[in-house]
């Protein structure tokens, strides 16, 4: 399987009271495994919706979404949950860490959700903590961390179960230049290790760091503006 993502004629619309509003309209694309993609576009263009569909958080009104060879549309809640836990890693703009868990436990959470515990978990978490450079922050709580540090924890968390695909919604949107760069470097490393990444961003500079850039406008996908790999 060479495509990590295959999206075929996907549409998504919402019922806003009695009105049907469309978020996505007949979107189709694919992403080769191991490559990264940035989605850009104005707000309300459906970027987040697309990301959610890729992560199985939502189901399309029409069309198919296939990730890692798995057709998502027909999966049960349990199967989707397992899919997200094992295959996907989410990174959000506002970090979304659990404030009542410390750094270590935040990162461990996806593993606990997978039913793992004990030494294996400790080992992996410590590994990740080291990888994102937060060794001396392991027992701190999110309230004691800076924005950049929090996002690094979020990335470590996303990597916990060795996912195939990272889905990031404006990963640097809340960070200053230096911290953003930090994260992008980590993303580069992730990409180098063979993990695919799809990130939403409005920042051109960030988008340039990715292999592919696609643009969404009013729910429609525009032809790829640029591709590094073709």
């Amino acid at each position: 399987m060479s495509q990590i993502i295959e999206v075929k004629k996907v549409s998504k619309s919402y019922l806003d009271g009695k009105r049907k509003t469309g978020a996505l309209d007949d979107v189709s694309f694919s992403l080769p495994a191991g490559e990264s993609m940035a989605i850009i576009g104005p707000s309300g263009s459906g970027k987040t919706t697309l990301l959610h569909l890729l992560g199985g958080l939502d189901k399309p009104s029409a069309g198919n979404v296939s990730v890692n060879g798995q057709e998502l549309t027909g999966l049960s809640d349990k199967e989707l949950s397992m899919f997200r836990n094992q295959t996907i890693g989410f990174v959000f703009q506002f970090f979304y860490l659990n404030e009542y868990l410390n750094v270590f436990h935040n990162i461990a959470l996806p593993m606990w959700l997978a039913g793992k515990s004990g030494g294996a978990v400790d080992q992996r978490v410590n590994q990740l903590i080291e990888r994102v450079g937060l060794i001396d922050r392991a027992t701190h709580f999110p309230s004691q961390l800076s924005g950049g540090e929090m996002q690094r924890v979020a990335v470590a968390r996303a990597l916990a179960n060795e996912p195939k695909l990272i889905l990031a919604d404006e990963p640097t949107g809340n960070l200053d230049r230096d911290n953003a760069e930090n994260i992008l470097q980590i993303f580069d490393e992730i990409s180098d290790s063979g993990v695919s990444i799809v990130a939403i961003t409005h920042d051109k500079y960030v988008a340039d760091r990715f292999d592919h850039v696609v643009k969404l406008n009013k729910g429609r996908l525009q032809p790829e503006a640029k591709s590094k790999t073709t």
């Binding site: 992560g55 958080l57 809640d77 349990k78 949950s81 397992m82 899919f83 997200r84 836990n85 094992q86 989410f90 959000f92 979304y96 659990n98 959470l109 996806p110 959700l113 997978a114 968390r157 179960n161």
Partner: peptide
């Protein structure tokens, strides 16, 4: 977030 991380 829990759901996104894979909670059923």
């Amino acid at each position: 977030v829990y759901r996104a991380l894979g909670a059923t």
